[in-house]
Nucleic acid binder design. Sequence first.
DNA 1: CGATGGCGTCGAAGCGCTTCGACGTTCAGC
DNA 2: GCTGAACGTCGAAGCGCTTCGACGCCATCG
Lengths: 337, 337
Amino acid sequence: MVTLADVAQHAGVSASTVSYVLSGKRTISEVTKRRVERSITELGYHPNAGARALASSRSNIIALMMPLRTDMYVPVMMEIAIAVAANAREHGFDVLMLTGEEGPAAVRRVVASGLVDAIILMDVELDDARLPLLRESGRPAVLIGLPSQTTGFTCVDLDFTRAGALCVEHLAESGHREIAVIGEAPAVYERKAGFAERTIDGLRARAQQLGVRVLHRPCEGTYASMAGALGQIFTERPDVTGFVVQNEQAVEPLLSLLRQDRRAVPEDISVVAVCPEQVALQGSVRLTSVTIPAREMARHAVGRLIAKIEGEADDEVVLLAPELVVRASSGPAPAGG
Amino acid sequence: MVTLADVAQHAGVSASTVSYVLSGKRTISEVTKRRVERSITELGYHPNAGARALASSRSNIIALMMPLRTDMYVPVMMEIAIAVAANAREHGFDVLMLTGEEGPAAVRRVVASGLVDAIILMDVELDDARLPLLRESGRPAVLIGLPSQTTGFTCVDLDFTRAGALCVEHLAESGHREIAVIGEAPAVYERKAGFAERTIDGLRARAQQLGVRVLHRPCEGTYASMAGALGQIFTERPDVTGFVVQNEQAVEPLLSLLRQDRRAVPEDISVVAVCPEQVALQGSVRLTSVTIPAREMARHAVGRLIAKIEGEADDEVVLLAPELVVRASSGPAPAGG
DNA sequence: CGATGGCGTCGAAGCGCTTCGACGTTCAGC
DNA sequence: GCTGAACGTCGAAGCGCTTCGACGCCATCG
């Protein structure tokens, strides 16, 4: 194990000088700096993380806490997690992965032990049990999602209200007057993740302004549950020509069932989804969709978090503006519906 | 910040005594132990991770390195990652998430800095660039996957050779004589992940013994690429009655296209997939499948890794025995094929 | 009854780093 | 030519913990 002292000796300077070369916290002459840097590479020196954390009270690690339920919207979560890690590295931070399984107490553990400098919470619920602990810890934190009480935290999320509105707008512009919303699984509403309701709220509000009728049905995302929902929808509202799909798992079942039902997409039925871009592109039909910008959310989250660690940022709520991309699954409403 | 010294003073003992109570490395009387433990909870003491790592040269963190490509078999990876984290916690370890993006050098960084005690590598390629670095680091490591050179490492993987064999066996038993294999995307073969070839090898070998003809076609997992492959297959081998799907993303496209093609599953065509259980259960047809046991792989990986950290394990190759579960997508070959 | 040894506890020496104050040097300003 | 700031470097004091050797004590044994 090569230590700071070894480097110092090899370069013929004191240990503190080496430390200052590394941190840049004091001015060091070009010559000395170069000499030290050469010694560092020659000896293959890597600063000891533990010692550094102890002396500086900074670990340069941030915790990323996964959703409490791991069965939900897996692809988005994974994408965010990877992007968070990549972004954190760019700022010199590593990422500690916390599962929901350990429960809210994990927050206290990693913070109180100084293991992490800050925390990112994914998939925050409206009244999340982790928030009080986080608040009391006093550590910088960024939430992905929007709880009911945001004071003390920076929150990053997609503007789902606007996303919902965008979907109706697009359908209304194409002449659709009756639309159905394939919602998230009932469990998602029960645990009050917030985003599902916000989407619906935005959608309904805009629909009313535009004179569009809306029918909302939650859906598990399986073929069976989709078939059930679809049956109900067409019985109750035979004139539905537009679908908005919130639950990304329900997309393929819906398309497949419509096909079986001899309803052509987009000629008879238009479909708009709220989902990651990948999902919109890889299915049987290229979907008109509002993209969930996982990478961008991660970038914002990490950016703000680092700023807070450096002490140069306030709490704020960042709602990313959604964008609707028209692809092959939507078109003009059939004439004379 | 409450420190060891605070606890010691509060309990009226020396710091080392508190430390020994915590670690159990020396005998402490019941009375003292209880007194110390009370002080700990009363003061809300959490040992400082940095100090502990420095003094003991153990961080109690293991690194989990993601695949270099993040676009592949996302659900399995996610499942393994979560399970690794959960298992690690049970042993008192945390998990540091390393993305492929940082490249093989990440291995050196986290090991040389003492940030982590050991490493788990996911999705190891046959000739993986990270292995030499890992070997030279001398740290305990477990690979998920099977490289060409395993010396010095413990490897955990599904026995894909056997998995391939199981698929043919099942189809052969039901009377199928001509089968097609929907393989992984060409990119997977190019990067030599190994598991894809092993599956095919096992499958072909067993097919030969059983007198079954096999046609193998790689597939991207999109509808377009699946449609292309399917066309080729039925042109070249009109009598194919059984399909083995390696690429889990190709499952739905295949089923959907067969449906369009008026080929009933399982009456006309039997489909067997190699995929996680979740995928087998949630599609339009409950799939006969060989399960990829993500959680079990994670459990083994973490178990062996911890054993190696404690210095009580040798290198070994653990190939988990695959199991085929018959569901609704396979049945007897149609008479008079 | 003194030697022996296990048990329970303590003190002190680090682990490798950061950071603060101090100490030359050099150079501009008057 | 003297003062004082700015610059570049060093020494030393920790950061909070683990761990080694030592020490007293009591029970055990010959």
